Simulated assay, not measured.
Amino acid sequence: MPIVELHLLQGYDDGVKARLGKGLTDAVRFVLPAAPEAVTVMVHEMAAANYYRGGEMRQPAPALPDPTRIVHDYLSAMERRDLPAAQAMLAEGFTMQFPGAAPMTTLEELIAWSKPRYAFVRKTYERFDAMPGNGGAIVYCFGTLHGEWLDGTAFEGIRFIDRFEIAGGKLIRQDVWNDMAEAKAQA
């Protein structure tokens, strides 16, 4: 039974500690064939007043935002067409790649590209998978698309996967895979 001990400065809320516990459990299970309930994570908290580095008292860094929440909030803002809210979640140099399209760097490009394809599209989420990567986080979002073609015909059940890269709490890249072209060809 693997046991992981984490020493943490006081001040982090229970949600942050839960994210750390899950992340450490997942890291152990990535290497060892252990069931989640077989991995023990012990969090030892220490008063920040007792923390020194370089001979100076230091304060703990704030926790990074949950990358899954960032992705969900971004996709929700896009679905509502709240472009200022969505734009605020993008890092400088953000790039997105959709099936059959050249890379795009602005939300306006995405809207112009999608305009001749469908009247609207919405997502039903099956799950979000988050992991560390590239100096930040990688989040995969899985689910199905539903909406309306330009002729007013409804569609639903079209599979999609979105992959996001996040650094510094901002989205830096989005890659999209879906079966929309195949579904449209059969409509």
Rank of each mutant, 00 (worst) to 15 (best):
M1A: 13
M1S: 15
I3D: 12
I3F: 12
H7D: 15
L8D: 08
Q10E: 15
Q10T: 13
Q10C: 13
G11Q: 07
D14H: 00
G15K: 08
K17D: 02
A18C: 00
A18T: 07
K22Q: 15
L24W: 10
V28E: 14
R29Y: 15
P33V: 01
A35V: 05
P36K: 14
V39L: 10
V43T: 13
M46H: 09
A48V: 13
A49Q: 13
N50C: 10
N50V: 04
R53E: 13
G54T: 12
M57C: 01
P60R: 00
A63R: 01
P65S: 01
P67V: 01
I70L: 04
I70F: 01
V71I: 03
V71R: 07
Y74M: 03
S76Y: 11
R80D: 10
R80S: 07
D82K: 04
Q87M: 00
L90N: 03
Q97K: 09
P99I: 02
A101S: 11
A101P: 11
A102W: 07
L107Y: 06
L110T: 07
P116A: 04
R117H: 14
F120W: 13
R122W: 05
T124D: 14
Y125S: 12
F128A: 08
D129H: 04
A130R: 05
M131W: 02
G133Q: 01
G133K: 00
V139H: 00
T144L: 01
H146M: 05
H146F: 13
G147Y: 06
A154L: 14
A154P: 14
I158F: 03
F160S: 08
D162M: 01
D162V: 03
L171G: 00
I172S: 08
Q174I: 07
D175A: 09
N178M: 07
D179F: 05
D179R: 12
E182A: 15
K184V: 10
K184Y: 11
A185M: 05
A185W: 09
A185P: 05
Q186C: 10
A187E: 05
